[in-house]
Amino acid sequence: MGIGIGILLLVIGLILVLDAITLPDSVTDVIDAQMIGWICVIVGALSLVLVVVMNQQRSKTRHIEERREG
C-alpha cells in the first residue's frame, strides 16, 4: 500500500465515523457504518506507519559493488 491509499482509507474512515454523510437505511440495515469507519481508520493509520518505516529502511540501505578479477 502506498501513502495515497493510506490517506484515502483514513479519510473514508473518518467520514464514516463522524457521520459526515447519511447512508440510506438499506445500507445501514446490512452494515454498521461506524465499525467499518473505525476499521478503515486503523488500517489507514497502519498503512501510513508502514510506508514511513519502509521508506526509512530504504534510505539506510547501502550497496557495495565487488569486482573480481580472474
Rank of each mutant, 00 (worst) to 15 (best):
I42V: 15
L10F: 15
E65M: 07
V51M: 04
I39A: 13
L9C: 11
R68M: 06
T61Y: 13
I21N: 06
Q56F: 12
L14I: 15
T28G: 01
L50S: 12
W38V: 05
I3K: 14
R58V: 05
I36L: 15
P24Y: 10
R67F: 09
G2Q: 05
C40Y: 03
G37Y: 04
D25T: 13
I7A: 09
E69M: 04
K60N: 10
L23M: 10
V11C: 04
V53E: 09
G6C: 05
R67N: 08
H63E: 08
Q57A: 11
L50D: 07
V51E: 08
I42E: 02
G6N: 02
M54V: 06
I5C: 09
L10K: 01
N55K: 12
S47V: 01
R62S: 12
D32G: 05
N55H: 11
M1K: 10
L46K: 06
L50Q: 07
D29P: 00
K60A: 11
L48A: 05
M54C: 04
R67L: 13
I64E: 08
Q56R: 12
D19L: 07
R62L: 11
K60D: 09
R58P: 00
A20H: 09
S26C: 03
D19P: 01
G70N: 08
V43Q: 02
I36M: 13
P24E: 08
L18S: 11
I31H: 03
G37H: 05
L8T: 10
A20P: 00
I64M: 11
E65W: 06
L18D: 04
G2I: 05
G70E: 10
Q57S: 08
V51N: 08
G13A: 11
S59A: 15
N55V: 07
R62K: 15
I42Q: 03
D19I: 04
S47E: 01
G44M: 03
G4W: 12
D29F: 02
I5M: 14
E69G: 04
K60V: 06
G13F: 04
Q57K: 13
L50A: 09
V41Q: 03
I21T: 08
A45W: 02
V51H: 05
T22N: 14
V49P: 01
N55D: 10
E65Q: 09
G4L: 12
E66W: 08
D29H: 04
A20K: 13
L10A: 07
G70Q: 09
A45F: 10
G13K: 02
L23D: 01
D32H: 10
D19A: 13
L46S: 11
I7G: 01
L48P: 00
Q34A: 07
L16F: 13
L23A: 02
R67G: 06
I42H: 02
D19G: 14
T28F: 03
T28R: 08
I3F: 12
I39S: 06
V43I: 15
S26W: 15
T22E: 14
V49F: 10
